[in-house]
Amino acid sequence: MRLLPWHKPHLLVRPNNLKLRKLNTMEYFIQQLINGLTLGGMYALIALGYTMVYGVIQLINFAHGEFFAAGGYVGAIALAYFAGIGYMDSHPIICLTASFMIAMAYCAYLAVGVEKIAYKPLRKNSRLAALLSALGMSIFLSNGMMLTQGVYDKVYPGELFQGRFDFGMVTISYLQIMIVSLTACLLVGLNLLVFKTKIGMAMRATAQDKTMSALVAIGSNKIISLTFAIGAGLAAAAGIMYGLYYGSVKYDMGFVPGIKAFAAAVLGGIGNITGAMIGGLIIGMVEIFGAGYISSEYKDVFAFIILIGVLYFKPNGIMGENIDDTRV
């Protein structure tokens, strides 16, 4: 390893496995692929909430982005608390798991309440009224978080998952591996729940035809609440991952990922769970590759363009819609 002028001990310390050649094209591509997969996983989790809720009550839940942000906040609070009482150093994995559970439970609790207050009374009204109520709820929640938690970024403890693997010049951090594998587990779990259990069947039935499901004694109110809860729980998990990945959370962090996740849900076919997963991954990849190869400044635009394009050319999405179309 040639000694460069600044390789003096008190100036700069480079890791031992440094190779001083530039990344070649293939490695650049793989690196961006990994980045895109991580981001796409988070979008997929948020998109699932949108798609399931739209499937049962045909409402774009604008407040879903705020469930994502709330999850991030509660995760930060829980992790800070555990660090404060000293458990973090001895049992980091247990603390992390506990934080995930706490955040997911909190957001499920929040979502069920929000549904009962702002959406349930408006089910008989026009779509516009419910949409406006959702918008109002989104503003209300994000500002509520700002007032209770402050306007500054809330910092996540950074001692977790600090290492990384280096394959040549491609780097996969432990954190990325954790996020991708956790996302995969949650998606598999959801699939099992929806397609292999009785409750899942009830959810699918309510999504397909509410009136008929009520006739066969499926309590649609309970199912709708359950859908909200599960969706919000997944968003909360995504929120914690986001906080760990980027180092901090903020009260307005739900807005832009929320829209992109909705774009993902639409891309995959609204109401369609597998579609939402695939849509999320695609949107994440497009954003990262667009930023890496085309333009980093306009990267938010790519998701919006996909959204508009899909809705114009193929409104049913990639995998087809799955909503209650018996409602007039």
Partner: peptide, 21 residues
């Protein structure tokens, strides 16, 4: 032009997207 053929909810989110673009 592209948005007006869409359903009410989609119209909302697409106009939001255009506004952001």
């Amino acid at each position: 032009y592209p948005t007006l053929r869409m359903r009410g909810d989609y119209l909302a989110i697409v106009t939001l997207g255009f506004g952001e673009i």
